[in-house]
Structure formats: structure tokens, C-alpha cells
Nucleic acid binder design. Structure first.
Length: 271
DNA sequence: GCCTTTTATCGTCACCTAGA
DNA sequence: TCTAGGTGACGATAAAAGGC
């Protein structure tokens, strides 16, 4: 997912890698759905002195100047829309008790209860699609090893491949009446990709054949390009959604921090 | 179970743009 | 100017979802 990190904020490449994802046993973890596609993991650490709990809050904003400094390399745990609100050592947030609390990032949990816990390729829908969808023409072509494009007239063909003509394999072509490629369905369950002559289905000689071949090549490339384009588009949209989630959480955390600072200020003022 | 609607994916065309 | 690649728009198709 190249570029995703940049969209959400750059990550210092020199910073040490974060520890493996896990949650400390002292923390109480609650999970709330703030945004449709985003899970917020809210860590609430029990205060050591009393029963009051210190809310652990922070903002993930690696590349911004703020009173809230981010721990290095928080970003990598933000995948799949999960946004983790964690504490950081240098936060200016004080506890209601007035003592500066060294809130530490313990670890980060990755949720398991939502769809987001699936990897991109493993969501239920994706997996279902993998089971039910016919592979794309290109995939079929690639799976069959490839780039060879045979030009044959449209229509059904019979191939005798067995001994004494025992197994005659029928090839039936779909889309054969239209310009462009056709799927040839092989009787034994295989399919392969065969471009069909654009005009009448007849192989023309000379310049016509060349033109047809050029056209097929262009269509093939454009098909690939369209696929790639859609993939990038999806990635971009996902990236934007992640960014929205991150910014919303930053906003929320900043509001909370402001509230805390106000409380602290009022408290110190009254003393 | 059948029909209709919605959603996702794909291929193609047309257009635009950058580079040769 | 030509060409290749990227992308929006459109229609076709299949599957899921929902209503009956």
C-alpha cells in the first residue's frame, strides 16, 4: 500500500520499529465505532493510587507540530482503518489529581471482532468473490502461461486430441459476434482467451490482419490499464477514508486534551 | 422459490496528457 | 505529430440482498 502512509502522515524511517502488537494486562480496552469504517481502541489505564482511572488519550500526527508529540512509528498499526488512541510519555496532559502522569504507550491492540480484522484480501466478501467469480480474461490468460495470442475465426471448433479421435473437445466461443476478444470454453472445464477478429470473424490478410492484431493488442493493454487504474483508485479512496478517520480522531483527542488543560488550569487557579 | 433492485466488477471507448 | 499510458463514462454481467 504505497503512499498510504504519506497520506496519513509520514513515518520517520529512522525511528525504531514498534513492538509487536499486544495489549498490556493492566489496561482495560474498550472499542467503539466512531466512524463507520474505523475502529477506535480506547485504552483506559487504572490509576495506581486510587480507583479513578486515567484516560489515556493522544493524537496520531507524526508530521505535525503540536503540544501532543507522537510516539515514533505509530502509523504502521493504523492499517485496515483501526485507529489507536494511546498515551505518550511527553504528553502535557495532567491527571485530574494534578500530578503529571507519565503515560506510556504500552502496546497496541489489533481488533479481532470486526471485518477490519481481515486483511484486504481476506474479507468475507473478497473471499466469497474469489470462490464464485469467474477469473478475469487476463488472469485466465496468465494462468495458462500466457502471452501467446491465437487468432482464430469466431465460431465453434472441434479438436480431436485423443487416440483415434476418441476424445473430441468442443470449443464454444462466447462474444463471438462482437468485436473484441472472446472466451473460448474448453469442454474439459478450462477456458482461455482468444481475440476475435473485429469485423466479420474472418481472418483477413495483409493490412487488415495487422490492424486487427494492433487493435487486439491495444484492447489488451487498455484492459490491463483499466484494471490498474481501478486498483489505484480504490487504494486512493481507502487512503482518503483512513485519513478522514485519523483526522477525526485527532480532532477528538485535541478537544479532550483542551478540556483537560482547562480543568487543570482552573484547578491550579483556585489553589 | 421467484422476481426485482442494488452492488461490484469488468471490458471498451473516448479523451487527455506527457514524452519521443 | 504520433504514440503510449491513464482515467472517466458507459453498458454488460453476475452475485447479493430484499420483498413477496
Amino acid at each position: 500500500m504505497d503512499g498510504m502512509v504519506d497520506e496519513n502522515g509520514t513515518v520517520d524511517p529512522l525511528a525504531p520499529s514498534p513492538p509487536p502488537v499486544a495489549i498490556s494486562s493492566v489496561g482495560v480496552v474498550t472499542q467503539q465505532q466512531l466512524v463507520a469504517s474505523t475502529n477506535i481502541v480506547h485504552l483506559t489505564l487504572p490509576a495506581s493510587n486510587n480507583h479513578a482511572q486515567t484516560q489515556v488519550q493522544s493524537v496520531i500526527q507524526p508530521n505535525q507540530q503540536s503540544v501532543i508529540q507522537t510516539a515514533a512509528n505509530i502509523q504502521p498499526v493504523l492499517g485496515k482503518g483501526n485507529v489507536i488512541l494511546v498515551s505518550k510519555p511527553n504528553s502535557v496532559i495532567q491527571t485530574p489529581q494534578g500530578s503529571l502522569h507519565a503515560l506510556q504507550v504500552i502496546n497496541v491492540v489489533e481488533t479481532t471482532a470486526s471485518d477490519d480484522s481481515y486483511s484486504d484480501d481476506e474479507s468475507p466478501k473478497k473471499r466469497r468473490d474469489l470462490l464464485t467469480r469467474r477469473p478475469s480474461y487476463r488472469k485466465i490468460l496468465n494462468d495458462l502461461g500466457g502471452g501467446e495470442i491465437a487468432v482464430i475465426p469466431a465460431g465453434a471448433i472441434q479438436i480431436s486430441s485423443g487416440e483415434g479421435g476418441q476424445s473430441i473437445h468442443t470449443l464454444s466461443m462466447t462474444n463471438s459476434g462482437t468485436a473484441g476478444a472472446a472466451i473460448v470454453q474448453y469442454a474439459q472445464g478450462q477456458e482461455f482467451f482468444v481475440p476475435v477478429m473485429a469485423q466479420s470473424g474472418n481472418i483477413t490478410s495483409g493490412g487488415g490482419e495487422d490492424q486487427a492484431r494492433k487493435r487486439e493488442m491495444r484492447l489488451l493493454k487498455n484492459r490491463e490499464a483499466a484494471r490498474e487504474c481501478r486498483r489505484k483508485k480504490k487504494e486512493y479512496i481507502k487512503c482518503l477514508e483512513n485519513r478522514v478517520a485519523v483526522l477525526e480522531n485527532q480532532n477528538k483527542a485535541l478537544i479532550d486534551e483542551l478540556k483537560s488543560l482547562k480543568e487543570l488550569y482552573c484547578k491550579q487557579k483556585t489553589e
